[in-house]
Design a protein around this nucleic acid. Structure first.
Lengths: 157, 157
DNA sequence: TATTGTTATACTCTATAACTATA
DNA sequence: TATAGTTATAGAGTATAACAATA
């Protein structure tokens, strides 16, 4: 009933885009939930890394990341090698099976997006990607712990 | 490690934007979860409507919508009036209290977005909104039941 | 018989907190 | 003492299925 400010409109879109994501998720293999694909995709994109970095890239708590990684590791989609620099950490690396399933998911999603967005110009998709990248950057650290950790740095009292 | 197609990149963003949405959600009053705000926002934007239409706009199953509406109704944020045209339905309408809390949430989110996106040009935000609107349109009905319902229309066998 | 809406149940994702093992 | 990671528990969101009431 009411026209909204660009900010309010954006806020509405942010919630609604989840529905589009669910559409993509429904095409996933049964034992490969969205959390796993996010992990595999990041390992595929950035290569070997530690859990803490993965959690940071996912903008999700480490405990959540740990569960996703455990699931993927349980299926043999990634390997955990000891970190020579820190005995507490392990380096996560995509396995051949993980690379395979990642390729399969990527192909399926590309197909689906290409068909749904058939009337889009590629430059428009790139434009959207650019804006979304910038949006994520602008929000920087909106991670769960990002708020509470500040208590250590307080200088008053 | 690998450069990806625009489609693969978009798929990645769709998942990651959820983190931004969570950032917004954290600023909500304790008894007002994201599901409620989505309901209130749509009633505020489109005015009185039935549950089935609301579910359609949310791109979520009616059972889910029913729960969100029940929560909001329990707090007195919306009223359910009998539908003169169909005894099975009720018309959902924002109450004064609902209007109030919606205004409060809108203001809070606008503030947060304005501060995070301080270095954005308004025209860029509008551009992003335009593209997101189009994205949602392009995906049209990716609702849960949209797939299964097809079984009624099969012509083989 | 089909449709609107509700409820029960199950699954995914996330966060907090308590715990371990290294640093 | 602080940090990397794990696990247990709790809460929100969603989907399926079974059901009630009305069309």
């Amino acid at each position: 009933m009411a026209a909204r400010s660009p900010y309010e409109e954006l806020a509405g879109h942010l919630g609604a885009v989840a529905a589009v994501k669910r559409g993509l998720t429904r095409s996933l293999p049964d034992d490969c939930p969205a959390g796993s694909t996010a992990v595999l995709a990041l390992l595929g994109k950035h290569g070997e890394m530690r859990l803490s970095r993965l959690a940071d890239l996912l903008a999700v708590d480490m405990s959540v990341t740990s569960r996703h990684v455990a699931h993927a590791a349980g299926r043999g989609w990634l390997e955990r090698h000891p970190d020579p620099l820190d005995g507490r950490s392990r380096l996560l690396r995509l396995s051949p099976a993980g690379t395979r399933i990642l390729a399969e998911v990527s192909e399926r999603w590309t197909e689906m997006l290409a068909s749904r967005l058939a009337d889009w110009d590629v430059s428009e998709i790139e434009q959207l990607n650019t804006l979304l990248t910038r949006l994520r950057t602008s929000f920087g650290d909106c991670h769960p712990r990002a708020h509470h950790d500040r208590t250590t740095t307080r200088t008053d009292a």
